[in-house]
Design a protein around this nucleic acid. Structure first.
Lengths: 149, 149
DNA sequence: TGTTAAATAATAATAAATATCATTTAGTAA
DNA sequence: TTACTAAATGATATTTATTATTATTTAACA
């Protein structure tokens, strides 16, 4: 964080705890999860404070906001990485591939007009947990054909 | 769309127009933009209908919901592609790279547990428009150093 | 063309996020 | 240290976004 940005910015317990919580929990917590987590330490924290700080810290570039299936999630991991996103349950986990980052940035260099500073690839599919719980469900009938509107 | 899914599904004007609007507008419209757009043709359509159909069509797999800077946007483009996302204004445009898709899917094959069906890379940066409007603002002071919390 | 389940419009109800404001606090400088 | 001040907090009100309800309409199909 640059000193100029720091001017007029206070490091309150609330702010520090929220940031610490995010740095200790890389499971992309939602607002409520951050609220519940931080409340363990700061029992009297207001949810409005959590909202305001998540927004503030995101604007300051200390957090990243991601959204899966309509819910906002936050992360403090700024080491460029990718995401494995389950289409079924909406869970999301980090995935690293230096190769893919390099490859993407190489492609980014050729894009005109838009100045790219970072990239992230989302891998969509079905996670282990959902795959296993699907096995126990009724198997689909065969003989279905594709048919667009 | 599979015939089995089609059972008990009606092709109302509202639904058809919403889908048509999304297919004609690849700028990732928000709920309100879809509402305003469709209202040109169906002046009496209710916003609740727009909400319900966007949700319904997304669940049926005919639309994709994406979220930038906290706002939901929808697209009907199912040809795998990537996105250029402006950190400044939150705008988002499509970007195609067959190479990158191939490369990503090759990497996906090596991921254990998670079964990947598609990938999409987000390129974050600053768009042409924002870059130009920044020029007119005061330039930053020099001599800044990095300094973490 | 009659029947019926599904969808709609209008609106009420909920939930999510932001704004307000009196009070407290971190940062700074005397 | 102490005093000052802008920034942040907590509590709550307000706004905005989304979903639920329900009487009515409509698409699908026998």
């Amino acid at each position: 964080m640059k000193p100029t940005d720091k001017a007029g910015m206070k490091y309150t317990n609330q702010r520090v705890e929220i940031l610490a919580f995010l740095r200790e929990h890389d499971g992309h917590p939602t607002v409520d999860e951050v609220y519940d987590g931080v409340r363990q330490k700061l029992t009297r924290i207001s949810k409005a404070t959590v909202y305001k700080n998540l927004k503030f810290l995101t604007e300051k570039g200390l957090l990243e906001e991601v959204n899966v299936k309509g819910v906002s999630r936050f992360e403090a991991n700024f080491i460029p990485h990718h995401h494995l996103i389950c289409r079924e349950c909406g869970s999301m986990e980090d995935f690293n591939s230096e190769q893919l980052l390099d490859y993407s940035m190489k492609i980014a260099e050729e894009i005109e007009g838009f100045t790219i500073v970072s990239t992230s690839t989302n891998f969509y599919g079905i996670c282990k947990k959902c795959k296993e719980s699907k096995k126990s469900e009724e198997p689909k009938k065969s003989g279905e054909s594709e048919d667009e509107i």
